[in-house]
């Protein structure tokens, strides 16, 4: 079932019946393709089918990586609180890397620095975590979606 993901484009054609157009090339019907994609979603291999934006062009120019030091028994709660903010796109518990004590990592997006800092302030308040650091991005060298094409 996963093979289909290698056979359809990572970027759908923008035409009236995109699934028909893609399905035709691999010898199935549009309905079948839709069905397979729905199954892949239910399976979890496809998180969703959606548009991905160039967020810098829709005025989300700032992104901050905020790292938090959560107590072992408080990670679950803190992770949930951090994740509840719409401005947070990613939140993971990570290994400390032998580098520091921070174990919760979050990506925060905003239209300016103040917006990001405001969210970070609220997170600190709600989680009670006072030990954290914020690293704004200075330059984007690469940002692509994960794909299984050409691997």
């Amino acid at each position: 079932m996963y093979r289909i993901l290698e056979r359809i484009p990572h970027d759908f054609p923008i035409v009236e019946r995109p699934y028909d157009a893609m399905a035709k090339k691999i010898g199935i019907s549009g309905k079948e393709l839709i069905d397979i994609l729905k199954r892949l979603k239910a399976d979890g291999a496809v998180r969703r089918v959606a548009s991905v934006l160039y967020y810098r062009r829709v005025s989300y120019t700032h992104n901050a990586m905020a790292v938090w030091r959560a107590a072992d028994d408080g990670i679950e709660r803190a992770g949930r609180i951090i994740s509840s903010f719409p401005q947070v796109s990613h939140c993971y518990e990570r290994d400390r890397g032998g580098y520091w004590g921070y174990n919760l990592f979050s990506m925060i997006h905003g239209k300016n620095l103040q917006d990001c800092m405001e969210v970070i302030g609220k997170i600190s308040e709600k989680t009670g975590i006072k030990d954290f650091q914020v690293f704004f991005s200075k330059r984007e060298f690469k940002k692509i979606s994960f794909s299984i094409h050409h691997e």
Partner: peptide, 9 residues
């Protein structure tokens, strides 16, 4: 503005 439309894996 749209980078792509497709499956997010």
């Amino acid at each position: 503005i749209i980078r792509r439309i497709g499956p997010i894996l």
